[in-house]
Amino acid sequence: MLNDLFQSIKIEDLIEATKETFYMTITALIGTFILGIILGLLLFLTSKDGIWKNKSFHFVVSAVVNVFRAIPFIILIFLLFPFTNFLIGTIRGPEAALPALIIGSAPFYGRLVEIALREVDRGVVEAAKAMGAKTRTIIFKVLLPESMPALISGITVTAIALIGYTAMAGAIGAGGLGSYAYYSGFMRRDFDIVFLCTVLIVIIVFIFQFIGDIIATKLDKR
């Protein structure tokens, strides 16, 4: 019966597309996590009462973050074509989507990181300073561990936005479920494919949300 309903679906293609979506999401998520934390730390540390207080540097980072957040993702992909081509050697396929995915979501996550770091008790940072901690120690042993639940919640929200981005990237040739839904489904008027891809994407979103929530709760000892 299921085969009657989804007669135009090739199961191998569907599995391949799902794999590609997972590949793009997870790889881009790792890149976003690292780049976002760097951006968030820079924003936080160079801010008005930060350890590396630096007005002009803060302004520059803040401006870059805001500009990249303002560019619609689909346009960002086009803008980055030359960069992607230089970096990956092609503008098609899951790998080629990664630069745009990371650059598109890292600034957003960077802001979330900044907010998470601002929530860290200033007294604890002060206590670490009073013990003679270096800035590096303060970052890696105080700021990041103390804000970890918020960093995880933030990356979960970002992951869900990223899954949306992969579908968009798919529509212009990056592969994955978005691509499958667009080329094999929409273009050929096989709406059962579009429907099934939608369901799969929703399930993937739920999985990420579920995992994120569990980790955030487990880490939070407050």
């Binding site: 007294g123 206590a127 013990m131 120690t137 103390e146």
Partner: peptide, 27 residues
């Protein structure tokens, strides 16, 4: 120079022993 605070300023993410070990890690 040790210092203690009104609001204790402990790291919530660390256990009692790890909080006490923190200055030793720094040193």
């Amino acid at each position: 120079i040790g210092m203690i605070f009104q609001h204790f300023n402990l790291l919530w993410s660390r256990t009692v022993e790890d909080n006490i070990a923190f200055p030793l890690e720094i040193a």
